[in-house]
Amino acid sequence: MATETKTAAAEKSGKDSTLSDKFHNAAFINEYGKLESLRAVRQNTLFSVILVNIEGFEGTQSSLKDPKMLATVQKVAAAIISAVRNSDVVGMTDNKQIVIIMPETDYFTSLSLIRKLSHATDVLLRDGVIDAAVAYAQAAFPRDGKTYDELLMTAKYRFTDRKNSLWDKLDLDDKLFWEIVEGLFSRGYKGFDNSCFDAGMGFELTEFIMDQINDLIMKEIKRSAHRKAVAYFSARKISASLPVAKGLAVSGPLSSKIYLAGEAGDNIREIRNASLIILDDPRLKETFFTFYLTENSGYALVCKENWGATFSCFHTSDHYMVEGLINKFYKEYSLQEQLV
């Protein structure tokens, strides 16, 4: 021990031997979280935390004494450790909840990491390695709190807050992307969170409402070019002549990530400021979607073309719905995450 540095000793004692070498105990993780928040304040950098909720795991030491539960937690922890980056730190909070501290990570990257983690734990569930559902909630500095404890509180609050969202009310986690989309049109939602409307010939709204909303989003993105957001626009065919692509062509560098999804059309190499997701899926020929997520708000629009140039549309301002739809879209089409 005499030859070990203090940090190494703390790190060694911080490993939770019942789980994995890279899994740290509450004392270490609390200290690390606090230091990370101090560093973020001092150096004006970012960091995020992700809390993991394992169904049936009540967050007590006694529940870890149940061999089955311990095995589940170990499997989940191992899957998480293999999915996170080398810079991320995984451990257990005082309340026996798995937490991941991610230095230099903003809100959007933490959402990407949740998708990656959830893919890893979904595989365990699918293969019967575990039989408990795993849920994730994140919080990012400084958006959701200035200290580590505040971030943990926000992440915890999100678990309960999400229960009020349409996503959880309809239990959409277990459904496929297109199954969810199909189910949204027929329910006749009305209100400020979720709403349905018809557009096209014979309706109050014309079919151009979709272009108008996309234009609205593009303007928001371009007005604050330094602000981060993600936007997904689907089209029958991606081409440089799409209104969205034209809007992007005349814009300078943007901090937002913009994706265009659909079949490859003309002059796609001329499209600027966007990543293309080339999908040859017949469902994208009759159903269009727009997902827009910022740090403060979310918006999703899904429109299905019916006979006679009319459209059934659903749109939502529910953040969890927007996140859920984006996650499902990623999962369904095996899109890869860019974690930087």
Binding site: F192, S195, E204, I213, T316, S317
Partner: peptide, 10 residues
């Protein structure tokens, strides 16, 4: 009419 989510999101 039915534009509630646009009003709220933006």
């Amino acid at each position: 009419r039915n534009m509630g989510p646009v009003v709220k999101s933006f």
